[in-house]
Design a protein around this nucleic acid. Sequence first.
RNA 1: GCGGCAUUGGCGGAAUUGGUAGACGCGCCAGACUUAGGAUCUGGUUCCGAGAGGAGUGAAAGUUCGAGUCUUUUAUGCCGCACCA
Length: 952
Amino acid sequence: MSPQETVFRLLTLYFIIFMEYNFSEIERRWQEAWAKGAVYKVDNVSEKPHFYVLDMFPYPSGAGLHVGHPLGYIASDIYSRYKRLRGFNVLHPMGFDSYGLPAEQYAIQTGQHPEKTTMENIAHYIEQLRKIGFCYDWNREVRTCDPDFYRWTQWAFSRMFNSYFDPKTQKAQPIAKLIAEWEQNDPTWPKLSEREQQERLMHHRIAYLADQKVNWCPALGTVLANDEVSEGLSVRGGHPVEQRVMRQWCLRVSVYAPRLLEGLDRIDWTESLKETQRNWIGRSEGAEMQFRIKGRDDAFTIFTTRADTVFGVTFMVLAPESEYVQQIVTPEHKEEVDAYLNRCKHRTERERIADRKVTGVFSGSYAINPLTQAEIPIWISDYVLAGYGTGAIMAVPAHDSRDYAFARHFSLPIIPLIEGADVSEASFDAKEGKMINSGFLNGMEVKDAIQAMKEYITNTGIGRVKVNYRLRDAIFSRQRYWGEPFPIYYKNGMPYTLPDECLPLLLPEVTNFKPTETGEPPLGNAPMWAWDEQNRKVVDKKLIDEQTIFPLELCTMPGFAGSSAYYLRYMDPHNEEALVGHEANDYWRQVDLYLGGSEHATGHLIYSRFWNKFLYDLGYVCEDEPFKKLINQGMIQGRSNFVYRYIGEGATGNLYISYNLIDNPEYKDKVQPIHVNVNIVHNDVLDIDAFRKWMPEFRNAEFVFADGTSYDDNPYLAGPKQYICGWAIEKMSKSMFNVVNPDDVIAQFGADTLRLYEMFLGPLEMSKPWDTNGIDGVHRFLKKFWNMYETIEDGEPTPEELKSLHKLIKKLTWDIENFSFNTSIPALMIAQNELYTLKCHKRAILEQLAILIAPYAPHIAEEAWHRCGHDTYVVDAEWPECNEAYLVESVQKYPVQFNGKVRFTLECPKDTPKEEVEKLVLAHEDTKRYLGDMQIRKVIVVPGRIVNIVMG
RNA sequence: GCGGCAUUGGCGGAAUUGGUAGACGCGCCAGACUUAGGAUCUGGUUCCGAGAGGAGUGAAAGUUCGAGUCUUUUAUGCCGCACCA
């Protein structure tokens, strides 16, 4: 190479580097500029219409973000940026759900304070999020473990403690109102002692203490909520969970069941999510009835949805936990019953679910069927649940499969009540047919019979119509350290709230995060943990005298406490007077769009609706539903890669066979798949060098390559030597080596590519595997997009250029409004291709294009916008309007079908009348050919669409 | 068992109101440039068939001039709930 040539080459190289799409430089530069210019800061005062876009805030785990987390964040970011371009004042905040078990368990294992690890994890998360280029207003960040935040969690709890639910108005009210009412109208009230009064109030408070059968997890040393337990194991950690009765704080969520159900009709959530909540709330309409006990004065109450079947009741069943059991058991049966109860008590929920054998025991007592006056035996069995209905049922074996199984097992009578129902093999559970054996109901349809019976029992006073809900109160105590302390102290064993002005009650320092030796929760280890009522401050617990200094609550609040109202705090995060100021709340009102995973359907999303309705009742917030529209993003699964170790004859354990060869006879069933780190595999081709360096055991790995050879000394001379990996879709997890970190993707391709690619993968709501195989295509698109801005020319755009642009405007506008982000990326690619073909470098087109891509790829858009000569930020531009005039075609193409099969395309001028189109088609030279010797029956012309010739 | 969602090329997916199924991207094939290619560019790529043509959206039936789209039945997968009276 001559010196001249060398210089020329270097210059060319320099030019290429200079002009090349240098994403890391562009992204770093604009991220800094946005931060410096406070570009994403949002004001609560604005002339603009408001819009609130919220992501479910993450728990900052030690593992950092993986590529699945940002999926929803990117979608909401696109929407936020679009709304801002559309002239809205957009609230788009982010924060951290930073109390929780993992940090505490890590603390127990390592002695590191959970606060320290939590803060480090948050810092890592922020750094990762920052690199993706989200338009969050970080000024509004909240952290649930921050005293300035949990002050309001404690405040809300105090409000719940000091409120009751008024059944008449179906609203929460200050408990002072109830006390005032009793003072006026209830002569027994003033006679009660302070303690008795407190006990009575406890039955009405929204936040109350009660002995509860709880899910106790010995391994975690804490109580878990129902949704934190799955199949008898803790969701976090998989430890066994058992039933135990403990005194716990509870939230009276169940009283809100009707409103939680009704509210679903007024919010724009997916049907599946609403259905899940309806299911969870579990409304059933039925009747409550009294069954007298033979030989006694009292009766017990049952709940049934099949009032029509009373004539077929042949026995009664009580739940083992029912309070009636001890009252009705006869001396002869006591021993047997006690043995059964004992067995039930020791069976964990898990065993009960796993074992479906019919079990039960006869109590010795009989009840009287209120309609037939027949004597029916009362049994006890654990297939009846204490927590649902009244814990007692009337059994109708002919028409309920569980009752049927029970009756069969214990040889109890079965009376069919519906004409033609065959109950010799199974019960007839369907609610249809004509009634028989049912006295005055005979001949009626089931539906009418239910109605008639309801009227009958109401009129005769043996029962009443009743709606029942499955939803139970939430247990709100956790025997943990890393959570919000309750603003509660105990005077004579009764709880009292700390004055609001004394909040936050700070989480005390402890040196040991485990339960105390006496089995108290970890806060029992805190020396400074007593309340001085007179001086209104936390003092050493040695000073407790039960006169002025009292013990503080030792439990902390559960994970869902901090996440139940965080969306309100973002509206007004620095307000020191209120959770959210009225002015800020009146402006933002509610979350307009909430994005998150469907796994929160029955936990967080029920609790925060409850919490919000409670605050609404007391007038603290102006909307009774927190989240107007909600979209679930799908999960991102992992895509694992495998290498295949040869284990056949003469195996050294060091030879790996390319995936395409493993079914060959010589290797079939002689290879063992081994997970390989997906980060050293590109398009399913293994990076040999990286593999050998990955782990010591692969250092001397040898290969049979895709072409069947093993020679790899110099791949350049021998042609491409590729080792192809196999693959499988699995959960994204460290052990499968398929975790992809967004930082790595950003380092290799840039944040804009990551954002585009995550959207390009498929519809937002669907789960899909993270498959890096397609990412090159998206990155190539951005490179080509970048090249269009190499030179920028002035001049009038041509009609073709305008058509491309406006087609894109129309498409993207529709896509974003309909959350169809995956289809936007192809639209952008098509526009880029068209404009490239047209060699378009016109400013008028390119600057609009920069705005259009801005929500999706904000960094490249910002750079492009500035290249077009602007010195404002692209987020402050205006979203372009589609001008339909540019999209009008001068010719109309008609696909012409013969009996529904497309044969040719007819071109005719736009707006050719229907009759004219028909004439043109019939005159077309090909028509005769396709018609053959058949007759035309009918010609259908859909203007602007299609022509179909029906022949026969 | 109940409820919800899904099923389209080798792969991810598109088809927005019932109107040319397979857009766009990956991969693959061929070519150009190149010392080289995990770079770039051009063309091709649903299947069967040399071709004309035929088949085709998990399966079966139906409505319709016309169905991936609507209806019914059914299979498979995913998610949620579950002795809920």
